[in-house]
Structures are given as C-alpha cells and as structure tokens.
C-alpha cells in the first residue's frame, strides 16, 4: 500500500469506523510506515485530550443572573391567565368587600354564573386607573395652587 493515506482515514481507523477489511490493510501498513504511525499517535492524543478536557463552569455571578431572570419568567408563566374574584382581590391587595365597590368597573366576564377576569385585561385596567389617578392628582394640585393664590390676594 502506497502511503497516500488521508489523515481523516487514520482518524476513522482510530475511532473504529473503518470497514473490517480496510482496517486490516491499514493496520498492516502502520507497521511499516512511521509517518502514519505518528499521525495515529497524534489522533489518539487528540482523542485522549478531548476526553480529559475539563468542563468549564459559568462564574457564580453569571449563574446567579441566569437563575434570577429565569425565576422571574417562571413566576409569570405559571400564573393563571384567568383569575377568580378572590385572586383579583389578592392581586390588588384589598379585601373582597372592598373589591365589591369596584367590581362593576372590572374588565370581567361571566361563565357558568361566575365572574372571571383575564390577567392581561386586569393589568390594563390597573394602568388606566394609574393614569386617571395621576391626572386627577395633577388637577387637584392645580386647584389647590389656584385656591392658595386667590387666598393670598
């Protein structure tokens, strides 16, 4: 066998992937070809190195960051999309009796005689109330300032 063996074929031989007959030919050739034997040694050294290469670990800070963002996403994805009124009250940090006062304004719907609220709609409702509260606070502020001005005159 002339020594025109491809490096890849020596790799296939080392990995035991050559057909039996070709593997036998190559084995015989290796006994007389120092060049191919050196290549085989190098492939085996690479394979040993790959097996021994230690696993790298993320830094404690990086791992902490990943876990923290994950737990936030997990918390959100695991929350039910449809909420009962007691869950709405709990979400708003008020009692069920207090919820009664605003229940007519809630973006709720009825199913089998029960009220349900979609979480996304509830969040929109909260945001609308925030905007409305900011507007009315600003108006009260202006009214107070106006009254103060009138009084001082």
């Amino acid at each position: 066998m002339a020594c025109d063996i491809r490096y890849e074929e020596i790799g296939e031989f080392a990995a035991g992937e050559l057909p039996a007959e070709r593997a036998r030919e190559l084995e015989q050739h290796l006994r007389s070809c120092a060049n191919c034997q050196r290549r085989l040694d190098a492939v085996r050294a690479v394979d040993t190195g790959l097996a021994r290469l230690p696993r790298l670990l993320p830094s404690p800070g990086g791992l902490h960051r990943a876990r923290r963002s994950l737990s936030e996403v997990l918390r959100r994805t695991q929350e039910p999309e449809l909420m009962r009124l007691d869950e709405v009250a709990e979400f708003l940090r008020i009692s069920l009796d207090e919820l009664e006062e605003v229940v007519a304004e809630l973006p709720a719907f009825e199913v089998a005689g029960q009220l349900r609220v979609r979480r996304a709609k509830l969040l929109e409702w909260v945001e609308a109330r925030e905007r409305s509260y900011r507007r009315s606070s600003a108006q009260s502020e202006v009214a107070r300032a106006f009254a103060d001005t009138i009084e001082s005159h």
């Binding site: 490096y7 890849e8 790799g11 050196r38 492939v43 690479v46 190195g49």
Partner: peptide, 17 residues
C-alpha cells in the same frame, strides 16, 4: 456530520504532531 468530525480531529492532530 461524520466528515466534519473527522476533519476536525485530523486538523487538531496535525497541530498535535
């Protein structure tokens, strides 16, 4: 896949000789 892996091993071995 097989070709890519054997080429990679051969390329590394050449540098390892």
């Amino acid at each position: 896949v097989r070709t890519l892996i054997h080429r990679a091993r051969a390329a590394l071995a050449q540098r390892f000789e």
